[in-house]
Simulated assay, not measured.
Amino acid sequence: MIQVEKLNTGYGNVQILREISFEVNEGEVVSILGTNGAGKTTLLRTISGLIKSWSGTIKFQGEDISKAGPDDIVKRGLIQVPEGRKLFSTMSVYENLELGAFTKEAKKKSKDNLEMCFELFPILKEKEKQLAGSMSGGQQQMLAIGRALMSQPKLLLLDEPSTGLSPLLTKQVFSIINTIKEQGVTVLLVEQNAAQALNLSDRGYVIENGQIVMEGSAVELSNDTNLKASYLGVTS
Rank of each mutant, 00 (worst) to 15 (best):
M1E: 05
I2S: 08
Q3K: 09
E5W: 06
E5L: 11
E5A: 11
K6R: 08
K6C: 02
N8H: 14
N8M: 10
G12L: 03
N13I: 10
R18C: 12
I20N: 11
F22T: 10
E23S: 15
N25P: 06
G27H: 01
V29R: 04
I32E: 00
I32W: 02
T35A: 13
N36K: 08
A38I: 04
T41S: 02
L43A: 13
R45L: 02
R45H: 05
I47R: 06
L50D: 00
I51M: 15
G56V: 01
I58Q: 13
I58N: 11
F60L: 08
D64H: 02
I65E: 00
K67G: 14
A68W: 10
G69C: 15
G69W: 14
D71F: 14
I73E: 01
K75T: 11
G77S: 08
L78A: 07
E83Y: 01
R85E: 01
L87T: 01
S92P: 05
N96L: 05
E98G: 07
E98D: 10
G100W: 03
G100C: 05
F102T: 06
E105N: 00
A106T: 13
A106K: 11
K107Q: 09
D112P: 02
N113I: 02
L114E: 12
E115Q: 04
M116H: 07
M116S: 10
M116R: 10
C117Y: 05
P122D: 14
K125H: 10
K125S: 12
K127Y: 08
K127P: 00
K127G: 06
E128D: 15
Q130F: 13
A132N: 02
S134M: 12
S134V: 13
S136K: 00
S136P: 03
S136V: 05
A148C: 09
L149T: 09
M150S: 08
L156F: 07
L157D: 03
L157I: 04
L157F: 04
L157A: 05
L158H: 11
D159I: 06
S162M: 04
S162F: 04
L168S: 14
F174Q: 04
I177H: 07
I180R: 06
E182L: 12
T186E: 11
T186W: 07
L188K: 01
L188M: 01
L189S: 03
L198P: 10
L198S: 09
N199P: 02
L200Q: 12
D202W: 01
Y205C: 00
Y205D: 03
Y205P: 00
I207T: 01
I207Q: 04
Q211I: 14
Q211P: 12
I212H: 01
V213Q: 03
M214I: 13
S217Q: 05
V219P: 12
V219I: 14
S222Q: 15
D224T: 06
A229E: 15
A229S: 11
S230W: 10
L232R: 11
V234F: 11
S236H: 11
